[in-house]
């Protein structure tokens, strides 16, 4: 590993170089991520797919700075990623809403940490994002008074509102019903194209991956490695039921199952 290999790609928002992460659990040492090298371009929508346990959530935690790499390096622009920062907001698998705040206050939480805004601007922005996810009438509701899908939508509004440079999303739609999900696919793409965000999204739903991603990165478990990267050239906004999209998704699914069976043979 020469120092030159750490040189950041000038177009990249996030650069990962030879990232390895291990956990020492009860079941012994698990290599959750093994030698991951990847660039996420500025304004790119990157989707990570793979079976559960392939290290998707771990990778997102590392990008968020919530966890540290064992080997390799992660940079945001020119800065090494060492700790959490407002420039990289995370939307977690569970909604992680604060039960002592109502929906509006939850969305305000991140906005209040931005000193350059006035309180009125924060309120306006919070209300805008709540209405964007269709919950304008629920701003006074506490998390326990909302359905799982609504909670996840509040969480989405909460991570969008502070307008982070990078948005990291861990299976944010897996607990939602199909209708809400379709609506959010449209909203997310809308926000993505309008605001030119860099998004890294994790999912195990391949159709979702193809619908949203500019690139789809296929990971395989034990140890977590990049298997294949697909460029998705379909025009936006994409619709989840588009036949062209479906055939692309089928291609990715085939690739995934062939990688899975080959890695199982490898184990045998």
């Amino acid at each position: 590993m020469t120092p030159a290999s750490y040189k950041a790609n000038p177009l990249a928002a996030l650069t990962l170089r030879n990232v390895t992460k291990r956990f020492n659990g009860a079941a012994g040492c698990v290599t959750a991520l093994d030698d991951i090298t990847l660039d996420v371009k500025e304004g790119e929508f990157l989707v990570l797919v793979g079976p559960s346990g392939c290290g998707k959530s771990t990778l997102l935690s590392l990008l968020a700075g919530l966890d540290q790499v064992d080997e390799g390096a992660i940079r945001l622009g020119d800065e090494p990623v060492r700790s959490p920062g407002r420039d990289r907001l995370v939307m977690f698998q569970q909604d992680a809403l604060f039960p002592w705040l109502n929906a509006l206050e939850n969305v305000m939480f991140g906005l209040r940490l931005k000193p350059d805004l006035t309180e009125a601007e924060r309120l306006e922005s919070a209300r805008y994002y709540l209405s964007l996810v269709g919950l304008a009438d629920k701003e006074k509701a506490r998390p326990h008074e909302l359905s799982g899908g609504m909670r996840q939508r509040v969480a989405l509004a909460r991570s969008l509102a502070p307008n982070p440079r990078v948005l990291l999303m861990d299976e944010p739609f897996s607990a939602l019903d199909a209708l809400t999900r379709d609506q959010l696919y449209r909203d997310i793409q809308d926000i993505f194209t309008k605001r030119k965000k860099t998004i890294v999204l994790v999912t195990h739903n391949i159709r979702e991956a193809v619908c949203l991603g500019d690139r789809v990165v296929l990971l395989s478990p034990n140890p977590g490695r990049i298997r294949q990267i697909f460029d998705i050239k379909l025009p936006r906004p994409r619709r989840i039921n588009d036949p062209e999209l479906a055939s692309l998704a089928a291609e990715v699914t085939d690739a995934l199952s062939s990688h899975l069976s080959s890695s199982q043979e490898g184990l045998a």
């Binding site: 968020a64 407002r86 907001l89 995370v90 977690f92 992680a96 604060f98 002592w100 940490l113 909460r158």
Partner: peptide
């Protein structure tokens, strides 16, 4: 820990984290 992680990624730390997240939780 999920609350702490969520708050930290939104830029909360130190006193803010204690007063706005840890104590209420």
């Amino acid at each position: 820990p999920l609350y702490l992680r969520a708050a930290m990624t939104m830029g909360s730390k130190g006193w803010h984290l204690w007063l706005r997240v840890i104590f209420p939780a």
